[in-house]
């Protein structure tokens, strides 16, 4: 039997993704607003304004509500003695297996929003690939980083 990775990422990640969804939406909203203004100035047919509004509504629902939720629900990870397993993806579910001995280095990084919510992104690099765990709690991310780098240092390299 093949197990699902167990750990979920922090629930605060959901809030962060919603916020960045909002920022994303704001930009689209401004562009759409521009189009609406144009269509009023040049007297385009009314249905164009309607279509833009409907589009905005759907876009907002998807990017602020649905996608972050689906993404959060799908995201799982697990760091074991010998390997890291990740699962993510909204439409295409992707599971990734990275053996500890292949890990070359681990980075944590924070943007302004993540910092406010005390979260961090962990990036695991092998010689050929880069894997990201978004939005872990800060202590957890730090722990993970130390843990992985210690394990990775123990494992002997043969590439």
């Amino acid at each position: 039997m093949i197990f699902l990775p167990e750990k979920r990422i922090s629930e605060r990640a959901l809030t962060v993704w919603r916020i960045s969804g909002c920022i994303n939406f704001l930009i689209v909203f401004l562009i759409a607003g521009g189009f609406i203004a144009l269509s009023i100035i040049f007297k385009w047919p009314v249905w164009i304004i309607g279509a833009i509004l409907v589009f905005l509504l759907i876009y907002g629902f998807l990017f602020i509500y649905l996608f972050p939720l689906m993404r959060w629900k799908r995201w799982r990870y697990e760091v074991r003695e010998q390997e890291i397993e990740l699962q993510h993806g909204v439409f295409i579910v992707k599971r990734t297996l990275v053996p500890m001995i292949r890990v070359q280095h681990v980075d944590t990084q924070q943007g302004p929003i993540l910092r406010k919510y005390e979260l961090a992104t962990v990036t695991v690099s092998t010689a050929a690939t880069i894997h990201e765990i978004p939005a872990l709690q800060l202590e957890e991310a730090e722990e993970l980083r130390v843990f992985i780098s210690r394990l990775a240092r123990v494992a002997d390299e043969d590439v």
Binding site: R95, R102, T129
Partner: peptide, 13 residues
């Protein structure tokens, strides 16, 4: 096996 850096399995709906 010892040269593979990572393995992915993917599934769409």
């Amino acid at each position: 096996k010892n040269k593979i850096q990572s393995i992915d399995m993917k599934e769409s709906y």
